[in-house]
Design a protein around this nucleic acid. Structure first.
Lengths: 138, 138
DNA sequence: CAAGATATAACTATAATGGTTACAACGGTG
DNA sequence: CACCGTTGTAACCATTATAGTTATATCTTG
């Protein structure tokens, strides 16, 4: 099966790093900790910046959190890196036969249920903050 | 982003069909309602059969439910078509730098949280049955 | 301007998906 | 038994998202 992109876990990693090492976290330094290419980090930083979670200093280099880590939830990160669009976690087959009672109704009815399931998952993500994660370390 | 496969919604469609039209539902008939290729349906039927949800009659043709539709939940279907493996909804980046305190801890700590989020989604799926879906039709 | 950093475009390899063709095996009916 | 419609699979293909890579432009300070 196809899983939710590692963009999410990498972004969480980045924010944890920024939370514990406030000084000069450059893209290359972060890339070494995450163990990936610096361009991947810069792309993620761009999304985190656009979402208002981090400040990045072009030219001089380095980044920092724009919010205290106890006010950043996993849901914030999940939304920032657009790893799942709203109500689109589950894909539903298209153009069923509307002559058939099932084909005519399945999309709307199932969509409503799957939306609830996705919401339950996202609600759980909103309960965990970056600082709570850090507190679990070791 | 990458969504959860339409195998899931197609399988739910199939089970709804079997629930309301108990007589001779052949693969080709189902394929017309779902609006896809009969081979796709046969593949799904194979998974649903392996999961004990349906009986299929090779040779003569047709299929039927092995359980009453109020005892089949969306979670049963989701598991049957293996659309997400256990604790694998979220993919986590591999081989972070274990010299770094974040790299050393992030995987285990984040994995535990994401597992909970996945569980919340699956718990919601388990609350909806095929017969409940049918009751919403029209 | 030079140095070191971020920003971004373009390209690649990989993998899952949904679909398609083809063919073997099954099981009643004539 | 032979036929016919069905199920069961294997093999293959086009499409798509991902993660990574290379290259280049831009920014900021010394």
């Amino acid at each position: 099966m196809k899983q939710i992109s590692t963009r999410f876990s990498m972004a969480v990693h980045i924010l944890c790093l920024l939370a514990i090492s406030p000084a000069d976290c450059t893209g290359d330094f972060i890339a070494q900790s995450v163990n990936t290419n610096p361009v991947i980090i810069r792309r993620l930083m761009g999304m985190l910046k656009k979402a208002g979670l981090v400040d990045v200093r072009p030219g001089v280099g380095g980044a920092s959190l724009r919010k205290p880590p106890d006010q950043i939830t996993l849901l914030d990160v999940y939304r920032a890196v657009r790893v799942v669009e709203t109500d689109q976690l589950f894909r539903i087959h298209e153009h069923p036969n509307i002559q058939c009672p099932v084909g005519r109704n399945i999309e709307a009815v199932l969509q409503a249920e799957l939306k609830e399931a996705q919401a339950a998952m996202e609600a759980r993500l909103s309960q965990t903050t970056i600082s709570w994660l850090l507190a679990q370390f070791q």
